[in-house]
Amino acid sequence: MTTLLIIVLVVLCALVVISLVRGIVAFLKTTKLDLESGETQQNTEMQLLQNKMMFARIKYQALAVLVVAIILAVGGRG
């Protein structure tokens, strides 16, 4: 049981890193577009992607904390 939870935790941590990197890339693209031109339509798309990635990162982090709490609860019993 603990092994399965650790695997789930590693996967969730990987998803946190992936969503963080994608959010940073979207932020950098937004900044680059702001410097090159004042197009608001593309900026809005990048900003939506930033928000989506931030929400995904928070969701994965919350799930990872939940898995850690479960691991600690299971480990405390035995």
Score class of each variant (00 low, 15 high):
residue 22 R to Y: 06
residue 68 V to A: 04
residue 65 V to D: 02
residue 67 V to I: 11
residue 57 R to Y: 01
residue 58 I to L: 05
residue 50 Q to G: 03
residue 40 T to E: 13
residue 29 K to H: 10
residue 54 M to R: 05
residue 54 M to Q: 03
residue 21 V to R: 04
residue 24 I to K: 11
residue 8 V to G: 03
residue 26 A to M: 00
residue 21 V to Y: 08
residue 43 N to H: 12
residue 36 E to W: 03
residue 67 V to Y: 00
residue 10 V to L: 09
residue 73 A to K: 09
residue 33 L to W: 05
residue 50 Q to S: 05
residue 68 V to H: 01
residue 26 A to P: 01
residue 56 A to Q: 12
residue 56 A to V: 07
residue 61 Q to F: 15
residue 16 V to P: 00
residue 66 L to K: 04
residue 68 V to C: 10
residue 55 F to M: 12
residue 56 A to W: 07
residue 68 V to Q: 03
residue 48 L to M: 13
residue 26 A to G: 00
residue 68 V to P: 00
residue 39 E to C: 08
residue 51 N to Y: 03
residue 23 G to L: 01
residue 52 K to L: 13
residue 32 K to V: 11
residue 5 L to F: 13
residue 27 F to I: 07
residue 3 T to M: 04
residue 5 L to P: 03
residue 30 T to K: 15
residue 48 L to Q: 14
residue 19 S to N: 15
residue 47 Q to W: 09
residue 36 E to N: 06
residue 64 A to R: 02
residue 12 L to V: 03
residue 31 T to Y: 15
residue 70 I to R: 00
residue 6 I to A: 04
residue 64 A to M: 02
residue 1 M to G: 11
residue 25 V to I: 12
residue 57 R to E: 03
residue 42 Q to E: 15
residue 2 T to S: 12
residue 38 G to R: 08
residue 36 E to C: 02
residue 32 K to I: 07
residue 61 Q to H: 11
residue 76 G to N: 10
residue 25 V to G: 00
residue 40 T to H: 13
residue 9 L to V: 06
residue 50 Q to M: 10
residue 64 A to S: 06
residue 4 L to F: 10
residue 12 L to S: 01
residue 31 T to R: 14
residue 11 V to W: 08
residue 17 V to M: 08
residue 75 G to R: 03
residue 31 T to N: 11
residue 26 A to H: 00
residue 65 V to G: 04
residue 51 N to L: 06
residue 45 E to Y: 07
residue 40 T to M: 08
residue 44 T to S: 05
residue 44 T to L: 10
residue 48 L to E: 12
residue 75 G to L: 03
residue 53 M to L: 00
residue 71 I to W: 02
residue 42 Q to R: 09
residue 54 M to E: 03
residue 49 L to P: 01
residue 77 R to Y: 11
residue 48 L to R: 15
residue 12 L to D: 01
residue 30 T to W: 13
residue 58 I to F: 05
residue 10 V to K: 15
residue 28 L to M: 09
residue 78 G to V: 02
residue 65 V to R: 04
residue 62 A to T: 15
residue 52 K to C: 05
residue 8 V to K: 04
residue 66 L to S: 09
residue 37 S to F: 11
residue 78 G to H: 04
residue 2 T to P: 06
residue 36 E to P: 00
residue 67 V to R: 00
residue 15 L to I: 04
residue 17 V to S: 11
residue 3 T to C: 06
residue 76 G to E: 03
residue 19 S to P: 02
residue 10 V to I: 15
residue 15 L to P: 01
residue 72 L to H: 01
residue 39 E to L: 07
residue 75 G to T: 07
residue 69 A to M: 11
residue 6 I to S: 04
residue 4 L to D: 10
residue 63 L to M: 14
residue 15 L to D: 03
residue 14 A to I: 07
residue 37 S to Y: 07
residue 63 L to I: 06
residue 2 T to A: 15
residue 41 Q to D: 10
residue 34 D to I: 13
residue 74 V to P: 00
residue 59 K to A: 09
residue 62 A to G: 05
residue 61 Q to C: 10
residue 72 L to T: 05
residue 20 L to S: 07
residue 69 A to C: 07
residue 40 T to Y: 13
residue 63 L to G: 10
residue 55 F to T: 11
residue 24 I to D: 06
residue 63 L to R: 03
residue 37 S to C: 12
residue 33 L to E: 14
residue 77 R to K: 14
residue 51 N to G: 09
residue 49 L to C: 04
residue 64 A to K: 03
